[in-house]
């Protein structure tokens, strides 16, 4: 559905994206995560046809997006900055978009508005930030787009509203194969809904793929050899350790090994404790960024 190849984009000579590559499968929910200033919004705006790439290609269904009204007709972009909608009421904005998009679904729009209990005669400038996000989400989803692009849409929403947003997204993906591209800092939530994930750091894609495939072969272990200092020399040499933290006598490890290797480790090193815990997206993200610097910790 979305294919980005060798993309370069800079602002006033400062590179924002450098040789950026990305692939989003049709009908999937793709989570784009990254630190502040990593280039997430730039990527989304390039896909939305808002920004023009300096070099490289941004293709949606094999066609370039920029200055392509036909492609943009099938996209719905929800920006982070919603100031444009402030003077509108939901009724006026709905009327405008219904005239502009052929596939406008008035019933769906009404249903979402109803669900969020939004006043359609009130200006959006009078709405709270969360309500404004709900309203703009309704305007985007009612266009029944083939691809929904959301720039940090759930930040600032209450748990109930988030649940509703995800419900509509998942329904649209299931019912009509809508592709969803979503950027967020909320990794736990992304983990629950995304099929694929892309980790962007300093303008480059450093990790991308199916969430299940990425976590396959990666394990989080809690290992103890008894009292502090009892760990034998070269205890973990047989493992491919991605990340390790030590707290007292317990070591927390993220390793990339198959089941047999883990079993061999257990038999050969005989740790007192060797528990396998579920690997979270946060931990995967941390591993991908390769360290525990403050910047990454902020994101987590």
């Amino acid at each position: 559905m979305i294919d980005i190849r060798k993309l370069h984009k800079s602002f006033d000579g400062v590179p924002a994206l450098n040789n950026f590559e990305m692939k989003v499968r049709g009908g999937s929910i793709y989570g784009l995560v990254g630190t502040n200033g990593a280039g997430k919004t730039t990527v989304l705006q390039l896909i939305g046809g808002i920004l023009k790439a300096d070099d490289g290609k941004v293709l949606v269904d094999g066609r370039p997006v920029y200055e392509n009204a036909a492609v943009k007709e099938k996209l719905a972009f929800v920006p982070d900055d919603l100031s444009f909608f402030s003077p509108y009421t939901l009724r006026d904005a709905g009327r405008f978009f219904s005239e502009l998009y052929r596939d406008w679904d008035g019933k769906l729009f009404d249903a979402i508005i109803e669900q969020f209990q939004l006043d359609r005669k009130r200006r959006l400038s009078k709405f709270s930030k969360g309500m404004r996000k709900q309203a703009v989400f309704a305007l985007a989803l009612a266009r029944t787009p083939a691809c929904l692009i959301l720039d940090e849409p759930i930040d600032g929403l209450d748990p109930s509203a988030r649940k509703t947003v995800w419900k509509y997204i998942v329904d649209a993906v299931a019912d009509r194969g809508m592709t969803t591209l979503i950027s967020s800092h909320n990794l736990r939530e992304m983990e629950g809904f995304c099929d694929s994930i892309g980790v962007i750091h300093r303008g480059r894609m450093i990790l991308e793929g199916d969430l299940h495939a990425l976590t396959t072969g990666m394990h989080k272990l809690q290992v103890s050899f008894g009292q502090s200092g009892a760990r034998p020399e070269g205890a973990y040499d047989a493992l491919h350790v991605m990340h390790m933290e030590t707290g007292g006598s317990v070591d927390s490890l993220i390793v990339q090994n198959d089941e047999a290797a883990l079993e061999r480790f257990r038999k050969e090193k005989k740790p007192l404790i060797c528990d396998r815990l579920p690997l979270t997206l946060e931990e995967l993200f941390l591993c991908a960024l390769g360290g525990e610097n403050d910047e990454i910790k902020d994101v987590l």
Binding site: Q45, G48, G49, I50, E67, A69, A70, K72, E73, L75, F77, P79, D81, L82, S83, F84, F85, L100, Y101
Partner: peptide, 12 residues
Amino acid sequence: GASAVMRALPVT
């Protein structure tokens, strides 16, 4: 903000 929304509309 407004520029982003308007440029995302299906017009050249």
